[in-house]
Simulated assay, not measured.
Amino acid sequence: MARPLWSGSVSFGLINVPVQLVGAVRDLDVHFRQLHEKDGAPIETRRFCAEEDREVGYDEIAHGYETDDGTMIVLTDEELEAAAPRRSRTIDIDAFVDAGEIDPLLLDHPYILLPAGETDGVRRAYRLLAEVIEASGRVALGRIVLRAKEQLVTVGARDGLLALTTMRFHDELRPAADVDTGGARRPSAAKLKAAVQAIEAMAADWDPGDYEDRHRVRLQAAVEGSDRVEQVDDEDAADGGGRAPKSTASPDIMKSLKASLEKARAS
């Protein structure tokens, strides 16, 4: 089991459940180190003062905020500390909401909450909270101070465990009105019907095991000197994965929709 990132308790009403926070995802990316191509020596990152052209230590580093007009406002450690959230070891639940009401774009990073302690009382309280949340079909909304930052979170149930997901605040999402769509007209009813048919023909049951990270497979194959990378490239070529379609000045949407529908039905 991963090392706990945080320990505290989930609290709502008169119920207080001691928990530990662990990561819910694994980092399976292929990581590389930067090397000097000439001799293979590792590359180091150092901090230099642009004015004095010398390396500076962490104790000499201040924090500056640049305004729109280019003015640099320097904040002291005391000012930053005063703005920091109050340190807390409690996830205070504010409300229970329908999970379907939460915009998926607001969800950020998933974690697992585990019972903190081996006593029967702690485990019973944890099991009660997990089963109540799962039975309600809702998720709890609360806040947690994690890595010196207060974050909004949801607490739900997954496979008998409590699952916590950090969230973005609503004003962090870019409004749809700010996105330029080019002023395109609404599609005709015939085009909408053809598009819906194409989507329905491609409908399938979701199975995450059907998908793999092809880029990671190719990198691993390259590191291992395997010919597996060629096999994955062949799969990409077969289904067009990773290759952008050629653009045309005036694409025939109906023709493309019909071709997509015929391909979906054939497969």
Rank of each mutant, 00 (worst) to 15 (best):
G64D: 02
G64H: 05
G64R: 09
G64N: 03
Y65C: 00
E66A: 07
T67D: 09
D68M: 06
D68S: 12
G70E: 01
G70W: 06
G70H: 05
G70R: 08
G70Y: 00
M72E: 13
I73W: 02
L75P: 04
T76G: 13
T76V: 00
T76F: 07
D77L: 00
E79F: 06
E79K: 13
L80C: 02
A83N: 10
A83E: 04
A84F: 04
A84N: 08
P85Q: 05
R86D: 12
S88Q: 09
S88I: 07
R89N: 14
R89P: 04
T90G: 01
T90W: 09
I91G: 08
D92C: 05
D92I: 06
D92A: 14
A95F: 10
F96H: 13
F96M: 14
F96P: 10
V97H: 10
D98E: 15
D98C: 00
D98K: 11
D98G: 05
D98N: 14
A99T: 00
E101T: 13
E101A: 14
E101F: 06
I102E: 07
P104S: 12
P104W: 14
L106H: 11
L107A: 13
L107R: 14
D108G: 07
D108W: 06
Y111I: 05
I112K: 12
L113Q: 10
L113F: 01
L113D: 06
L113G: 14
P115D: 01
G117S: 00
G117C: 06
G117W: 10
E118K: 15
T119Q: 10
D120I: 08
D120A: 13
V122I: 15
R123K: 15
R124S: 08
R124Y: 14
A125V: 02
R127M: 06
R127D: 15
L129P: 09
E131H: 15
V132C: 14
V132F: 08
I133V: 13
E134D: 15
A135I: 04
G137L: 12
R138S: 13
V139I: 12
A140I: 14
R143I: 04
V145L: 02
L146W: 00
R147M: 15
A148H: 14
A148K: 13
A148P: 03
K149A: 14
K149F: 06
E150Y: 05
E150L: 11
L152E: 11
V153G: 01
V153P: 01
V155A: 10
G156N: 05
D159T: 01
D159L: 02
G160S: 07
L162R: 03
A163D: 13
L164W: 06
M167P: 02
R168D: 05
R168N: 08
R168H: 15
R168V: 06
F169A: 15
E172K: 02
L173Y: 09
L173R: 12
R174D: 03
